[in-house]
């Protein structure tokens, strides 16, 4: 029995939301992705893996759209997603984007700027996610985040 038509996979939704061919932001796909990850049992884990991959894309537009999905889902989703994003397993993928020791030298500047803005905003919005603050302090110590 084929899955009901609206049970599109998280992967196809994120692909649609970050499709480089999109002329402008596809908000309906973004919100559909957030809603779906909230409902699926393993949604948060799969969503963070998919987002990490897209955010590390060398294509600026694709990475920026993935960051917009991440930002939107952090605002709209609940604790399960927050705690998945607040794990080093995911935070490390963001660190790779901004750290010159990893992908930092080839990441587009706007992408690096957006990653740092998001991490900073989460230290204010989600103080209970201690690992996010740890990551932020480490980036400051390494001079990747300017004072």
């Amino acid at each position: 029995m084929a899955a009901p038509p609206d049970a599109e996979s998280l992967e196809s939704r994120i692909n649609r939301a970050t499709n480089p061919l999109n002329r402008d932001t596809d908000w309906s796909s973004i919100h559909a992705f957030c809603d779906q990850l909230n409902n699926d049992l393993e949604g948060p884990q799969l969503a963070t893996r998919l987002l990490a991959h897209k955010i590390q894309s060398p294509q600026e537009w694709e990475a920026m759209q993935a960051l917009l999905v991440l930002e939107t889902c952090m605002k709209n989703c609940g604790k399960r997603f927050h705690s998945e994003v607040g794990k080093f397993r995911f935070l490390n993928e963001l660190i790779k984007v901004v750290s010159p020791k990893y992908l930092g030298s080839r990441s587009p500047e706007p992408v690096k700027k957006k990653v740092l803005e998001l991490i900073y905003s989460w230290t204010l919005g989600l103080p209970e996610e201690a690992k996010i603050s740890d990551a932020y302090q480490m980036l400051k110590k390494q001079g990747i985040i300017k004072q």
Partner: peptide, 17 residues
Amino acid sequence: HNGKIEFHDDSDEDLLE
């Protein structure tokens, strides 16, 4: 068995340095 209740947070990696 040291009798101490260990709180096992679900698995995670270490912070990249």
